[in-house]
Design a protein around this nucleic acid. Structure first.
Length: 273
DNA sequence: ACTATTTCCTGGATGC
DNA sequence: TGCATCCAGGAAATAG
């Protein structure tokens, strides 16, 4: 499941491989298309544009596009936004490579390679926009004060608040559970009930777990691989996520799993209050 | 303005 | 072995 660290890893890899390349043709799959923008608009916006940069914003991959060979190349002409959903992948490959099932978009590049968007479960989305602005704050750059303000007066469970992309962009189920473990806070706690100390721990724990996961190339749970087709290693470091019944790494108590807002949530009943 | 619930989607796991 | 059912979850849509 691509969350912030996985998307960061993918975006970095794509930036390395694609920066400076030019999109020579665009193919978008048949309906129902996983698109937020109309297909014709995506096609027109991408065609013959140069990829100036690829980066992450929340869980979105942002391609900065410019018109090649013009003075206007200095400033971004448009952005292509890709959300990978649950199972989306962006593959850079030779045109000879067999087209995988569930391929929804293929861009042919001037470098004689192809960039393909494959997404079996179709939760991913493609869009073009002038300037993307994420709905929530970046967990890695928000100040402790602003972080605390996000949860003020919220009755919803802290787990749900962490997953709310309008508050924080990029936190998904794995890293919400891992951050709450580090903060020693149970996922069902009302967001507004967290003390100043707990909020500080949660902010630090979230930043730490995201940064460590980025260092290890993300978590490969089901089918996540980076843009080079390599798996991440952070799943080996999970302390609670996916460890129901297994001993807490700190105290040995079996990890519990509960369902909150239709999402599985894992925690240590002894370490987390 | 919030919050909770339902829906989308497919492959893999599970059960009989 | 084969078939049906369940489950995973990001985020939009819907309901309250």
């Amino acid at each position: 499941m691509p969350e912030l660290p996985e998307v960061e890893t993918i975006a970095r890899g794509l930036a390395k491989r694609l920066t400076g390349d030019v999109i020579e043709s665009v193919w978008l799959g048949s309906k129902p298309e996983p698109l937020k923008s109309p297909a014709a608009e995506i096609e027109a916006t991408l065609l013959s544009k140069k990829i100036a940069d690829v980066r992450r914003s929340g869980k979105h991959i942002v391609f900065d596009l410019v018109q090649p060979g013009t003075k206007a190349e200095q400033s971004a002409a448009a952005q292509w936004i890709v959300h990978l959903g649950m199972t989306g992948r962006l593959l850079v490959c030779s045109p000879d490579t067999e087209v995988a099932k569930h391929t929804h978009a293929v861009l042919r590049l001037a470098s004689r390679r192809e960039l393909r968007f494959v997404d079996p479960r179709r939760f991913g989305r493609l869009a073009v926009i002038e300037k993307f602005s994420p709905p929530g704050a970046e967990p890695l750059s928000i100040s402790p004060t602003d972080f605390a303000v996000l949860f003020r007066g919220r009755k919803t469970p802290i787990k749900s608040a962490l997953l709310n992309q309008k508050l924080l962009s990029g936190v998904g189920n794995i890293y919400a559970d891992e951050a709450l473990y580090r903060a020693r806070v149970r996922p069902r706690r009302r967001a507004a009930s967290l003390t100043a100390d707990e909020l500080r721990l949660l902010h630090q724990g979230l930043k730490q777990v995201l940064q460590e996961a980025i260092r290890l190339g993300g978590s490969s749970i089901s089918d996540y691989v980076n843009s080079e087709g390599e798996e991440g290693f952070f799943q080996l470091k999970h302390r609670v996520y996916g460890r129901e019944g297994k001993p807490c790494r700190k105290c040995g108590t079996p990890v519990k799993r509960v369902v909150i807002a239709a999402r599985s949530s894992h925690y240590c009943p002894k370490c987390q209050k």
